[in-house]
Protein backbone atom coordinates (compact mmCIF):
# COMPACT_ATOMS: atom_id res chain seq x y z
CA UNK A 1 0.00 0.00 0.00
CA UNK A 2 2.61 2.43 1.11
CA UNK A 3 4.69 1.83 -1.99
CA UNK A 4 1.69 2.45 -4.21
CA UNK A 5 0.89 5.65 -2.37
CA UNK A 6 4.46 6.70 -2.64
CA UNK A 7 4.75 5.91 -6.30
CA UNK A 8 1.45 7.58 -7.14
CA UNK A 9 2.56 10.62 -5.22
CA UNK A 10 5.86 10.53 -7.03
CA UNK A 11 4.07 10.16 -10.35
CA UNK A 12 1.82 13.07 -9.50
CA UNK A 13 4.90 15.12 -8.77
CA UNK A 14 6.60 14.02 -11.94
CA UNK A 15 3.55 14.67 -14.11
CA UNK A 16 2.65 17.76 -12.13
CA UNK A 17 3.29 19.84 -15.16
CA UNK A 18 0.44 18.10 -16.94
CA UNK A 19 -1.92 18.73 -14.06
CA UNK A 20 -1.28 22.43 -13.90
CA UNK A 21 -2.81 23.37 -17.25
CA UNK A 22 -5.95 21.33 -16.58
CA UNK A 23 -6.35 22.94 -13.19
CA UNK A 24 -5.67 26.35 -14.64
CA UNK A 25 -8.46 25.78 -17.18
CA UNK A 26 -10.79 25.24 -14.27
CA UNK A 27 -9.59 28.41 -12.60
CA UNK A 28 -9.81 30.35 -15.83
CA UNK A 29 -13.38 29.18 -16.23
CA UNK A 30 -14.22 30.24 -12.71
CA UNK A 31 -12.57 33.62 -13.04
CA UNK A 32 -14.15 34.04 -16.46
CA UNK A 33 -17.55 33.60 -14.79
CA UNK A 34 -16.65 36.21 -12.19
CA UNK A 35 -15.72 38.61 -14.94
CA UNK A 36 -18.97 37.98 -16.80
CA UNK A 37 -20.88 38.44 -13.54
CA UNK A 38 -19.31 41.86 -13.43
CA UNK A 39 -20.99 43.14 -16.56
CA UNK A 40 -24.07 40.91 -16.63
CA UNK A 41 -26.23 43.38 -14.66
CA UNK A 42 -25.24 46.12 -17.07
CA UNK A 43 -26.17 44.16 -20.16
CA UNK A 44 -29.38 42.92 -18.61
CA UNK A 45 -30.28 46.46 -17.57
CA UNK A 46 -29.67 47.81 -21.06
CA UNK A 47 -31.76 45.00 -22.59
CA UNK A 48 -34.58 45.71 -20.14
CA UNK A 49 -34.68 49.35 -21.12
CA UNK A 50 -35.81 48.38 -24.63
CA UNK A 51 -38.65 46.16 -23.47
CA UNK A 52 -42.30 47.10 -23.62
CA UNK A 53 -44.70 46.50 -20.72
CA UNK A 54 -45.69 43.03 -21.94
CA UNK A 55 -42.10 41.78 -22.29
CA UNK A 56 -41.05 43.37 -19.00
CA UNK A 57 -43.35 41.32 -16.85
CA UNK A 58 -42.95 38.11 -18.79
CA UNK A 59 -41.71 35.30 -16.60
CA UNK A 60 -39.41 33.49 -17.36
CA UNK A 61 -37.70 36.65 -18.63
CA UNK A 62 -37.12 37.08 -22.36
CA UNK A 63 -33.40 37.33 -23.06
CA UNK A 64 -33.31 38.28 -26.71
CA UNK A 65 -36.69 37.32 -28.14
CA UNK A 66 -38.67 40.49 -27.54
CA UNK A 67 -39.83 43.42 -29.64
CA UNK A 68 -37.54 46.36 -28.90
CA UNK A 69 -39.29 49.61 -28.16
CA UNK A 70 -38.27 53.13 -27.24
CA UNK A 71 -41.34 53.83 -25.10
CA UNK A 72 -39.34 53.73 -21.84
CA UNK A 73 -36.97 56.35 -23.19
CA UNK A 74 -39.91 58.51 -24.24
CA UNK A 75 -41.33 58.38 -20.73
CA UNK A 76 -37.98 59.22 -19.18
CA UNK A 77 -37.51 62.22 -21.45
CA UNK A 78 -41.06 63.36 -20.78
CA UNK A 79 -40.13 63.39 -17.09
CA UNK A 80 -37.40 65.92 -17.82
CA UNK A 81 -34.40 63.63 -17.97
CA UNK A 82 -33.02 65.46 -21.00
CA UNK A 83 -32.62 68.56 -18.84
CA UNK A 84 -30.88 66.55 -16.12
CA UNK A 85 -28.44 65.15 -18.67
CA UNK A 86 -27.70 68.66 -19.94
CA UNK A 87 -27.09 70.04 -16.44
CA UNK A 88 -24.81 67.14 -15.57
CA UNK A 89 -22.84 67.64 -18.77
CA UNK A 90 -22.37 71.38 -18.18
CA UNK A 91 -21.44 70.84 -14.51
CA UNK A 92 -18.95 68.08 -15.27
CA UNK A 93 -17.29 70.05 -18.08
CA UNK A 94 -17.05 73.14 -15.88
CA UNK A 95 -15.47 71.01 -13.15
CA UNK A 96 -12.95 69.61 -15.64
CA UNK A 97 -11.91 73.09 -16.78
CA UNK A 98 -11.69 74.38 -13.21
CA UNK A 99 -9.68 71.38 -11.96
CA UNK A 100 -7.19 71.56 -14.82
CA UNK A 101 -6.77 75.33 -14.72
CA UNK A 102 -6.07 75.20 -10.98
CA UNK A 103 -4.30 71.85 -10.97
CA UNK A 104 -1.67 72.38 -13.66
CA UNK A 105 0.01 75.48 -12.14
CA UNK A 106 -0.10 73.90 -8.68
CA UNK A 107 1.49 70.67 -9.94
CA UNK A 108 4.12 72.72 -11.78
CA UNK A 109 4.96 74.77 -8.70
CA UNK A 110 5.20 71.69 -6.47
CA UNK A 111 7.62 70.01 -8.82
CA UNK A 112 9.75 72.88 -10.08
CA UNK A 113 9.95 75.40 -7.24
CA UNK A 114 11.44 75.36 -3.80
CA UNK A 115 9.53 77.45 -1.33
CA UNK A 116 8.85 77.53 2.40
CA UNK A 117 6.15 75.08 3.53
CA UNK A 118 6.33 73.18 0.25
CA UNK A 119 6.43 69.75 1.90
CA UNK A 120 3.64 70.61 4.29
CA UNK A 121 1.41 72.03 1.57
CA UNK A 122 1.99 69.04 -0.68
CA UNK A 123 1.17 66.80 2.25
CA UNK A 124 -2.14 68.63 2.50
CA UNK A 125 -2.79 67.84 -1.18
CA UNK A 126 -1.96 64.16 -0.68
CA UNK A 127 -4.17 64.00 2.39
CA UNK A 128 -7.01 65.58 0.44
CA UNK A 129 -7.15 62.62 -1.95
CA UNK A 130 -8.53 60.15 0.62
CA UNK A 131 -10.38 63.00 2.31
CA UNK A 132 -12.44 63.52 -0.84
CA UNK A 133 -13.13 59.78 -1.02
CA UNK A 134 -14.84 60.10 2.34
CA UNK A 135 -16.45 63.39 1.37
CA UNK A 136 -19.93 62.13 2.24
CA UNK A 137 -19.10 62.63 5.92
CA UNK A 138 -18.25 66.25 5.22
CA UNK A 139 -21.36 66.88 3.25
CA UNK A 140 -23.69 68.03 5.99
CA UNK A 141 -21.12 70.48 7.45
CA UNK A 142 -20.50 71.57 3.88
CA UNK A 143 -24.21 72.03 3.35
CA UNK A 144 -24.74 74.17 6.45
CA UNK A 145 -21.70 76.26 5.55
CA UNK A 146 -22.77 76.83 1.95
CA UNK A 147 -26.37 77.44 3.02
CA UNK A 148 -25.19 80.19 5.38
CA UNK A 149 -23.34 81.78 2.44
CA UNK A 150 -26.38 81.49 0.17
CA UNK A 151 -24.54 79.20 -2.23
CA UNK A 152 -26.96 76.27 -2.21
CA UNK A 153 -29.25 76.04 -5.22
CA UNK A 154 -26.94 78.11 -7.41
CA UNK A 155 -25.53 76.91 -10.73
CA UNK A 156 -21.93 77.30 -9.56
CA UNK A 157 -22.05 75.25 -6.37
CA UNK A 158 -21.83 71.80 -7.95
CA UNK A 159 -18.99 72.46 -10.44
CA UNK A 160 -17.07 74.04 -7.57
CA UNK A 161 -17.63 71.03 -5.30
CA UNK A 162 -16.81 68.49 -7.99
CA UNK A 163 -13.63 70.35 -8.93
CA UNK A 164 -12.53 70.59 -5.29
CA UNK A 165 -13.12 66.88 -4.70
CA UNK A 166 -11.14 65.86 -7.80
CA UNK A 167 -8.45 68.54 -7.67
CA UNK A 168 -5.98 66.79 -5.29
CA UNK A 169 -6.00 63.68 -7.47
CA UNK A 170 -5.57 65.82 -10.60
CA UNK A 171 -2.57 67.62 -9.07
CA UNK A 172 -1.06 64.25 -8.15
CA UNK A 173 -1.50 62.76 -11.64
CA UNK A 174 -0.17 65.89 -13.40
CA UNK A 175 2.78 66.27 -11.02
CA UNK A 176 3.73 62.65 -11.69
CA UNK A 177 4.18 63.49 -15.37
CA UNK A 178 5.95 66.82 -14.83
CA UNK A 179 8.52 64.94 -12.73
CA UNK A 180 9.48 63.03 -15.85
CA UNK A 181 10.15 66.16 -17.92
CA UNK A 182 13.93 66.90 -17.83
CA UNK A 183 14.79 70.04 -15.90
CA UNK A 184 17.38 70.87 -18.56
CA UNK A 185 14.49 72.00 -20.76
CA UNK A 186 13.48 74.56 -18.12
CA UNK A 187 17.08 75.69 -17.73
CA UNK A 188 17.56 76.12 -21.48
CA UNK A 189 14.34 78.13 -21.65
CA UNK A 190 15.45 80.29 -18.72
CA UNK A 191 18.78 80.89 -20.46
CA UNK A 192 16.80 82.04 -23.50
CA UNK A 193 15.03 84.55 -21.27
CA UNK A 194 11.73 82.79 -20.62
CA UNK A 195 9.73 83.68 -17.52
CA UNK A 196 8.43 80.87 -15.31
CA UNK A 197 4.97 81.36 -16.79
CA UNK A 198 6.37 81.08 -20.32
CA UNK A 199 8.10 77.83 -19.33
CA UNK A 200 4.79 76.50 -18.05
CA UNK A 201 3.03 77.61 -21.22
CA UNK A 202 5.57 76.62 -23.89
CA UNK A 203 7.70 73.85 -22.33
CA UNK A 204 5.60 72.02 -19.75
CA UNK A 205 2.10 72.32 -21.20
CA UNK A 206 2.80 70.60 -24.53
CA UNK A 207 4.52 67.73 -22.73
CA UNK A 208 1.90 67.07 -20.03
CA UNK A 209 -1.05 66.76 -22.42
CA UNK A 210 -1.51 63.01 -21.81
CA UNK A 211 -1.60 63.57 -18.04
CA UNK A 212 -4.07 66.44 -18.52
CA UNK A 213 -6.20 64.09 -20.61
CA UNK A 214 -6.13 61.38 -17.95
CA UNK A 215 -6.93 63.92 -15.23
CA UNK A 216 -9.74 65.42 -17.32
CA UNK A 217 -11.34 62.01 -17.80
CA UNK A 218 -11.14 61.20 -14.10
CA UNK A 219 -12.63 64.55 -13.12
CA UNK A 220 -15.41 64.17 -15.68
CA UNK A 221 -16.33 60.65 -14.62
CA UNK A 222 -16.14 61.52 -10.92
CA UNK A 223 -18.35 64.57 -11.41
CA UNK A 224 -20.86 62.81 -13.63
CA UNK A 225 -21.27 59.98 -11.13
CA UNK A 226 -21.50 62.16 -8.02
CA UNK A 227 -24.74 61.67 -6.09
CA UNK A 228 -24.67 62.84 -2.48
CA UNK A 229 -23.42 66.41 -2.97
CA UNK A 230 -25.58 66.81 -6.06
CA UNK A 231 -28.73 65.86 -4.20
CA UNK A 232 -27.95 67.84 -1.06
CA UNK A 233 -26.70 71.14 -2.46
CA UNK A 234 -29.38 71.60 -5.09
CA UNK A 235 -33.09 70.94 -4.87
CA UNK A 236 -34.55 73.02 -7.66
CA UNK A 237 -35.57 70.72 -10.54
CA UNK A 238 -33.97 73.03 -13.11
CA UNK A 239 -30.53 72.41 -11.56
CA UNK A 240 -30.97 68.71 -10.79
CA UNK A 241 -28.25 66.44 -12.15
CA UNK A 242 -28.53 62.90 -13.48
CA UNK A 243 -27.83 60.80 -10.37
CA UNK A 244 -30.35 62.47 -8.02
CA UNK A 245 -32.83 62.42 -10.91
CA UNK A 246 -32.48 58.64 -11.19
CA UNK A 247 -32.89 58.34 -7.44
CA UNK A 248 -36.07 60.38 -7.59
CA UNK A 249 -37.30 58.14 -10.45
CA UNK A 250 -37.05 55.20 -8.06
CA UNK A 251 -39.72 56.87 -5.97
CA UNK A 252 -41.64 58.14 -8.98
CA UNK A 253 -41.73 55.04 -11.19
CA UNK A 254 -41.68 52.62 -8.25
CA UNK A 255 -41.37 49.11 -9.57
CA UNK A 256 -41.58 50.08 -13.22
CA UNK A 257 -38.20 48.85 -14.29
CA UNK A 258 -38.58 49.96 -17.91
CA UNK A 259 -38.14 53.71 -17.34
CA UNK A 260 -35.70 53.07 -14.50
CA UNK A 261 -33.34 51.01 -16.64
CA UNK A 262 -33.77 53.47 -19.51
CA UNK A 263 -32.59 56.35 -17.32
CA UNK A 264 -29.77 54.17 -15.97
CA UNK A 265 -28.70 53.32 -19.52
CA UNK A 266 -28.67 57.00 -20.52
CA UNK A 267 -26.65 57.83 -17.40
CA UNK A 268 -23.93 55.28 -18.07
CA UNK A 269 -23.77 55.85 -21.83
CA UNK A 270 -21.32 58.80 -21.73
CA UNK A 271 -19.13 56.94 -19.25
CA UNK A 272 -19.06 53.82 -21.38
CA UNK A 273 -18.28 55.87 -24.51
CA UNK A 274 -15.39 57.62 -22.77
CA UNK A 275 -14.23 54.27 -21.45
CA UNK A 276 -14.34 52.67 -24.90
CA UNK A 277 -12.42 55.56 -26.46
CA UNK A 278 -9.90 56.30 -23.72
CA UNK A 279 -9.88 53.10 -21.67
CA UNK A 280 -6.12 52.80 -21.62
CA UNK A 281 -5.61 56.45 -20.64
CA UNK A 282 -8.25 56.12 -17.96
CA UNK A 283 -6.68 53.00 -16.47
CA UNK A 284 -3.27 54.65 -16.40
CA UNK A 285 -4.72 57.73 -14.73
CA UNK A 286 -6.60 55.64 -12.19
CA UNK A 287 -3.49 53.65 -11.41
CA UNK A 288 -1.37 56.77 -11.06
CA UNK A 289 -4.07 58.39 -8.96
CA UNK A 290 -4.22 55.50 -6.56
CA UNK A 291 -0.68 54.22 -6.14
CA UNK A 292 2.35 56.27 -6.70
CA UNK A 293 5.27 54.71 -8.49
Amino acid sequence: MSTITLSSAARARATGRHFVPRLSWLWSGLFGCLVILNIAPLIWGILTSFKGQADLFRFPPAFVSFTPTLENYERVFLSGFGGNLGISLVNALAAVVLALVLGLPAAYAFDRFNFPLRRLLFLAVVASIPLSIGAAALLIPNYVYFASLGLTNTPIVLPMLYAAHQLPMAIWVIKGTIEGIPRELDEAATADGCTTFQILRYVILPLVRPALGAAAILVFVGSWNEFVASSVMVDSPSLRTVQPAIYSFIGFFGREWGPLTASATLAILPILIIFALFGRLMVSGLTKGSVKG
Binding site: I39, L42, Q243, T261, I268
Partner: peptide, 13 residues
Protein backbone atom coordinates in the same frame (compact mmCIF):
# COMPACT_ATOMS: atom_id res chain seq x y z
CA UNK B 1 -16.78 48.49 -15.49
CA UNK B 2 -18.88 48.39 -12.29
CA UNK B 3 -16.42 50.75 -10.68
CA UNK B 4 -16.55 53.47 -13.32
CA UNK B 5 -20.33 53.68 -13.40
CA UNK B 6 -22.12 55.60 -10.67
CA UNK B 7 -23.04 53.94 -7.39
CA UNK B 8 -26.71 54.81 -7.90
CA UNK B 9 -26.89 53.14 -11.30
CA UNK B 10 -24.70 50.20 -10.32
CA UNK B 11 -26.84 49.49 -7.27
CA UNK B 12 -30.04 49.94 -9.25
CA UNK B 13 -28.95 47.48 -11.95
Amino acid sequence: VPWIISAVVATLL
